[in-house]
């Protein structure tokens, strides 16, 4: 070993992280599946807005639906909130799971992850880049929904400011603030699911398994949360915070449940990413 001096000094040089992140984002935003997904999500608030506008015209007396839906008619700024909260039940988690599935499992299946590993991109950095990509595109998805939702809401449903579920009327800018808060809360919840999905994604090379396991987690959590005997489990379930996101339209803002939802998501993010990191450090590429 002593004789093994290397002629040219090897230094651990690394490709700059921002360059890797840009490259990752560019690739994700060129993937047809991502683009179709984003497009469909952007349409959700528009379709919901048209539906509610038509239903309201038909029988303008009776408020219809339940939950937030009753408040959306004639209350355009609430449309993006409504669309985001509704999509958080299935569409957005599905999107997050899909992004995470493509990030590691999909790239492994295509053999593209090898190119990065032999470049080399360090494994921890690789996960950081992937996490950044998934997080950014999820945020983009919710932002997009907020934008189309706000525009569709104002055009189709009108209304001044935002009528909260507590019966107060917020000024326009405060309403926009609530929409942005919804974006943040919903995005963080999607991040939490995506973190878990990314851990699964590090474990398999079949993207479909990632989506199935993630949605399985959502469905099982949902089922567990409605079994009264398992109520004690509720604070631990990932879906519990999703239901409290609609608290953003209450006035005054119940900060307790909102912070709790964020903390719960943070716990899932820590668990998901530490499992993903542990797996990616040891997995055979």
């Amino acid at each position: 070993m002593t004789a093994m001096t290397v002629p040219a000094p090897l230094t651990a040089r690394r490709a700059p992280l921002p360059r890797l992140m840009r490259s990752e984002l560019r690739m994700m935003l060129r993937r047809p599946r991502t683009l179709i997904g984003l497009g469909l999500l952007a349409l959700v608030p528009v379709v919901a807005g048209i539906g509610i506008a038509i239903a309201t015209d038909a029988n303008s007396d009776e408020p219809m639906g339940q939950g937030l839906e009753t408040l959306v008619a004639g209350n355009g700024l609430l449309l993006p909130v409504f669309a985001l909260v509704v999509s958080l039940n299935m569409l957005l988690p599905l999107t997050g799971a899909m992004l995470a599935a493509d990030a590691l499992a999909g790239e492994t299946a295509h053999g593209t992850l090898r190119n990065l590993l032999t470049a080399p991109v360090g494994r921890a950095r690789l996960l950081a880049v992937k996490a950044f990509g998934v997080a950014t595109v999820s945020l983009l998805a919710t932002l997009l929904m907020a934008v189309t939702g706000t525009i569709a809401g104002i055009l189709l449903l009108g209304g001044e400011g935002m009528l909260t579920s507590s019966g107060t009327q917020l000024p326009f800018l405060d309403g926009v603030g609530r929409v942005l808060l919804t974006v943040v809360l919903v995005t963080v919840q999607v991040w939490a699911l995506a973190a878990v999905a990314l851990a699964v994604s590090a474990w398999t090379e079949h993207p479909l398994i990632v989506v199935v396991v993630s949605l399985g987690l959502v469905i099982v959590s949902g089922v567990l949360s409605v079994i009264p005997a398992l109520d004690w489990l509720d604070p631990v379930l990932i879906t519990t915070s999703w239901q409290s996101v609609s608290d953003v339209v209450r006035d005054p803002l119940p900060t307790g449940s909102i912070t709790e939802g964020l903390l719960r998501a943070a716990c899932y993010i820590v668990i998901g990413y530490s499992l993903a990191l542990s797996r990616i450090l040891t997995r055979d590429g």
Binding site: V270, I271, S274, L275, S278, L281, T282
Partner: peptide, 22 residues
Amino acid sequence: RTALAVAAAGTATGVVGLVLIA
């Protein structure tokens, strides 16, 4: 060993956090 430590520490932190919330 590093990987195991990461997994254990992260999962423990997250679970403790969830329990604290609960």
